[in-house]
Amino acid sequence: MPETGSIAVDAVINLRLDDGSALPLRQTIHAQPTKTPGLVVFPVLLSPLDFDEDWWSVTHAASGKRIPLNFRTPEAATAFANAAGRLADWTANSPQVQKQEALELAYEHGGHTDKQYMDAQREAAVSAA
């Protein structure tokens, strides 16, 4: 059941196939709005049926595409999204963003790249074993 105040967004998920390619799918998520119109936060989607409640992402609501950065808390993801309002017109269908500027802003808010997220997941799996 959607949370009160949530926004339904058709998010894009790239489902990895056995041959190494990816099949883009759309999944309706019920994301939390931010102070930046056009940006929402949601736990990191792992597949159409699974998400990582310990990590959060920021998604462009109009396109359903997530910004390829990850945050350890919803508060950090929201703080990044609120600050990212100055980087682009997020209400546009295809906002133009300077990658380096977005990355620097993400680091200021505790953001991690997808590679850093995957490395942290591998380390956690090794530690748990």
Rank of each mutant, 00 (worst) to 15 (best):
L69C: 00
P74E: 09
G85I: 02
N82K: 02
E104L: 14
Q98C: 10
N82W: 06
K99T: 14
N93C: 08
A92D: 14
N82P: 07
A77G: 07
P95D: 06
N93G: 15
E75V: 11
A79L: 09
A79V: 03
A102H: 05
S94M: 14
L69A: 02
A83E: 08
A88Q: 06
T91E: 14
S94K: 14
Q96W: 06
P74Q: 07
Q100A: 13
W90C: 11
F80Y: 15
N82C: 09
E104S: 10
I67V: 14
F80G: 03
N70L: 06
L87I: 05
P95E: 07
A83W: 04
T91A: 03
P68N: 05
W90P: 12
Q100L: 15
G85A: 01
N93M: 15
I67F: 05
A92P: 06
V97L: 07
L69Y: 07
A102Y: 11
A83V: 02
Q100M: 09
L103G: 00
A83G: 00
G85L: 04
N93I: 12
A102W: 05
W90L: 12
Q98P: 01
P74S: 05
E75H: 08
N93P: 15
K99S: 09
P68E: 05
T73A: 04
A84L: 05
E101H: 10
Q100Y: 10
T73I: 08
A77L: 13
I67G: 00
F80R: 01
N70A: 13
N70E: 11
T91M: 11
P95Y: 11
P68S: 06
A92F: 09
T78E: 06
A88P: 10
A76F: 08
P68K: 02
P74M: 06
P68D: 08
F71M: 07
L87H: 03
P68W: 01
A84Q: 12
A84M: 04
E101N: 09
T73D: 08
Q96C: 05
T78D: 02
L103S: 04
T73H: 05
V97Y: 03
E104W: 07
A92R: 15
E104K: 12
R66E: 06
Q98E: 15
N70W: 00
N82H: 07
I67M: 08
A81H: 00
T78S: 02
Q96S: 04
R66C: 08
I67N: 01
G85D: 01
D89E: 13
F71E: 04
E101T: 15
Q100W: 13
Q100E: 15
T73F: 07
A76G: 01
G85S: 05
R72P: 11
A76L: 14
R72K: 14
P95N: 08
A88M: 12
A102E: 10
L87F: 06
S94W: 13
G85T: 02
W90I: 09
L69M: 13
Q100N: 12
N82T: 04
E75L: 13
A79G: 03
E101I: 11
A84W: 02
S94P: 04
A102D: 05
P95W: 14
A88E: 11
P68V: 05
P95L: 13
